[in-house]
């Protein structure tokens, strides 16, 4: 009996694009979609909700508390709750992950707006900005670095959390883990881990790049 190698390249070659739903490339694509949709939805919801929390202070405490409780729930629990509603579909993974993203992004939006220095806000008022324009042209742009920092955390954790969906067959690259464990066959596991890490590094890198392009004025960049 020959020793099983850690990685069998021929397996990768055969399974990269075999046309079926279990092809590595198909899983990768699935993973990307399932990881990014929650972040996107999260951002779309977190912006108005974060603004509302800044506008009506009393809203923030309960919202933050709710989000933290959600965050502390094991993702599996959340998946099983939605399983009964949305079945074995992508939504069962995407919806809970959206809540996780919100738990990071709402505070990021609130903290971002709080990071706008008081003199900046006051001089905007003093120069005659009306509230909506002040928000769009001054406060939100100045909040961008803090919001982007939250977005990086949300994105990377979303990419890693998608794998848990493998338990209901919707885990993107996470499906490779189950496949590997069931067969005591390491190659898919290694491929899954490597691709997920690469994906996370790539996404984070893109966000850092976006930050540099969007906020050339940020002092933090110089020291980073």
């Amino acid at each position: 009996m020959t020793e099983e190698p850690l990685v069998r390249w021929d397996w990768i070659a055969r399974n990269w694009a075999n046309g079926g739903p279990t092809a590595i490339s198909a899983l990768l694509e699935n993973h990307v979609v399932m990881a990014f949709l929650p972040v996107l939805f999260g951002l779309v919801v977190a912006l108005p909700l974060g603004l509302a929390c800044v506008r009506w202070r009393w809203l923030y405490q309960p919202t933050a508390a709710l989000m933290n409780v959600t965050y502390s729930l094991p993702s599996l629990v959340l998946f099983s709750i939605f399983l009964s509603v949305t079945g074995l579909t992508r939504s069962t993974v995407v919806i809970p992950l959206t809540f996780f993203a919100l738990a990071v992004l709402i505070p990021a939006v609130v903290d971002g707006l709080a990071s706008v220095p008081d003199p900046v806000r006051q001089s905007a008022v003093a120069m005659g900005f009306r509230p909506a324009r002040r928000l769009l042209r001054v406060e939100l742009p100045v909040a961008v670095p803090v919001v982007l920092a939250g977005l990086r955390v949300a994105t990377v954790s979303s990419i890693s959390l998608v794998s848990v969906g493998a338990l209901i067959g919707q885990g993107g690259l996470g499906n490779l883990f189950i496949d590997g464990w069931q067969r005591q066959f390491y190659t898919p596991i290694v491929v899954g881990i490597v691709l997920i890490v690469l994906l996370a590094v790539l996404a984070d890198g893109l966000l850092v790049l976006a930050q540099r392009l969007l906020t050339p004025w940020s002092r933090a960049r110089r020291t980073a």
Binding site: P119, S123, M127, G128, V142
Partner: peptide
């Protein structure tokens, strides 16, 4: 109307309060 009034009055504060992103 306050914004109209303010656009006709210059205002300078201690910390300058410049817009960091502009």
């Amino acid at each position: 109307d306050p914004p109209t009034l303010r656009r006709g009055i210059g205002y300078v504060i201690q910390q300058a309060g410049l817009f960091p992103h502009r």
